[in-house]
Design a protein around this nucleic acid. Structure first.
Lengths: 206, 206, 206, 206
DNA sequence: CATGAATGAGGCTTCATTCAT
DNA sequence: GATGAATGAAGCCTCATTCAT
């Protein structure tokens, strides 16, 4: 009907936005092209002008996520952990930043965390690659902290990473995303409290 | 084709088995009835003799899971935590049992943990009910341990639960399921070590 | 489950009864074997012990109808129309008897009249044959009445037959079958009044 | 395949045409979407672009019929019956027009008259509504003629209507539709002759 | 570039019929 | 004979993708 000519990148971005929203709401498999083009206010054919397929749009969504993700990682890498006295506050800052990042991009986080486990033969491969990118950074950090002496050496970094990412995913999915307003600071407090000292009460025998 | 008449319960069980395998491999949405009946070596109509629909088969899979799950819970509840000196070893036992349970039922675990987050309006309701059943028990345990004095009172049980279940899901999904042979004992050791004392090295300043 | 051994003819008749009821309620196409065996309280396999197929059962139903139909025809043929003075009352009797017949066998009538027009490639042929049997008798009667001089010779017997059967079908379908209690005598009165003298008022000009 | 883009209304009309033909040949229940799309020379998906379901297509067919039907009714209502001397010729005209209408739209007539009695829970409601529309007009006419004095007052209009519609249906179904060329005028002559004066020969005693 | 009608593979489900028990 | 589990062809419908305009 009314046809609007937009800058290619703008239109593409607009389509990715719509895809994110739709994938977040319905999940990759249940989402239909119709959903996406309706959300984007665009004709069917237009979708295929910017993506080769539904899967391709999904890839674009993940790439979008990766880009944003990397930004956070870069900021984190820029932070200096040289001063041992500041390590704890730095970790707190980092955690906060991640939570804020996921909180800012709820729909995107929804897609990524939800589809992450939803085995879909179609995008399996891309997923694995993406997860690797995401989690490599975390494992690296842990190992660095062990070298510095902040984290106990008897803990397996890979296992710790499983714990941390599991917590992150669960917290984001169950707390951050569903609630309108969350006190991220409180979450971080609990988080730090738990991972730093564990659950065991001080006085406990043995 | 050759036709084999089986006991109703046996056939039903065989179909559930096939469903579990297929759902584990492809996910609920991607799985087709064709996949299931091929996995079960059964004619199309036979499937509908035992289930009203694909969703119904999925429900049956979840019920199967719940039944097995409850067995573990029951065994756990039977265990006495009266003696404070034994609490740690009891927790170790419990953890081990859960890991063994998921390890024994890898496909089932795959389905449950993966679809758990996959937003599917179709089975949303059943899921919520199921998850509640599953996680209520964990939160209860944590609170009990706090009363006894084993777990620090300043930790929010609900948050701890998020952490524990996140860890469990991630560990099962990334370690237990994909690997042919896993040293569950080693995992439990790390696990206990981490959650009991946290990550922080003893001598660390501040 | 409980198996009852019955005389072959009895069981067959019981199945035909059930078929009639089901076909009357749902129509041939919508009726399922399941409907029939449930109505008959018989196992699936048993149905195929007595009929080759659903169509075969339908044929049996029609044969049942034809048999009953012929009985009425035979009784009618037995009636003498020799005395011209009695022709009108004889016709009245005949009409009454037909209406009573259809009234007695409502379900059967429903099936026959409804499916009569519902073109189903499956039973087309049998239908045509059946209709011919049914209506031949009527045309014969009309022609006989023309010979006797009761019916005007300028009326085409075939056309008259179309009229009569159309009226019969419509009256049975719309009046006799749906109503719990019908005053058949009243219907016959109107009927005779109409076909004997037509609609035109006596005094009407031209 | 080769793809032809048509005006939406044209394509829809083409699909209704195909539906009419298929429903006329096989009946609603036996007709399959495959039949219809083959008759229309269109892909499966195209059908669902224009109808929600098979039932929806059937509704469209009925609506098509109703539209045409109403046209005839309107023309009839426009005709004046004021002059008593012309009533007979007016009725003849009317009858002729109806026959011509059904003759022009044989397939449509087939569908309507045949499915009219076919009990199908699916379209029951729409049918009843449609039949009411169709037959109300006829009963009204009869009553008007009684008031004018043309039709005998002792005849029940409702019953007469059953007779007339029964005749119409039967004549159309058995004479007009199956025969390649029918002399409609002859039919109307016989028809008028019969309903006006009835069957009884003048001289007949009593 | 944009549009949206058209396509057809493939998914879910029904149900007449068969056959092992 | 009777039973009912098993079969699979065939029906309805969806939806990712294509392509004429």
């Amino acid at each position: 009907m009314t046809r609007t000519v937009l800058d290619k990148e703008v239109r593409r971005s607009q389509l990715i936005d719509a895809s994110i929203k739709v994938f977040a709401t319905k999940g990759y498999r249940s989402a239909s092209i119709t959903d996406i083009i309706e959300a984007a206010g665009v004709a069917r054919g237009t979708f295929y002008l910017y993506f080769d397929s539904k899967l391709d749009a999904f890839h674009a969504v993940m790439d979008r996520f990766l880009d944003l993700y990397k930004e956070v990682v870069d900021r984190e890498l820029a932070r200096s952990y040289a001063n041992p006295l500041m390590i704890r506050s730095r970790i707190r800052e980092s955690l906060m930043e991640w939570l804020e990042f996921f909180s800012r991009n709820k729909d995107l986080a929804k897609v990524v965390f939800r589809e992450a486990n939803a085995i879909d033969p179609e995008y399996e491969q891309k997923w694995q690659a993406m997860l690797e990118v995401c989690f490599k950074h975390w494992t690296d950090s842990i190992m660095r902290f062990q070298k510095v002496g902040f984290v106990r050496k008897e803990l397996d970094p890979r296992f710790l990473n499983l714990c941390f990412s599991g917590i992150m995913i669960n917290v984001v999915l169950q707390e951050v995303i569903p609630k309108e307003r969350v006190d991220l600071k409180k979450i971080v407090d609990q988080w730090i409290e738990f991972i730093e000292f564990g659950i065991k009460a001080k006085g406990w025998l043995a």
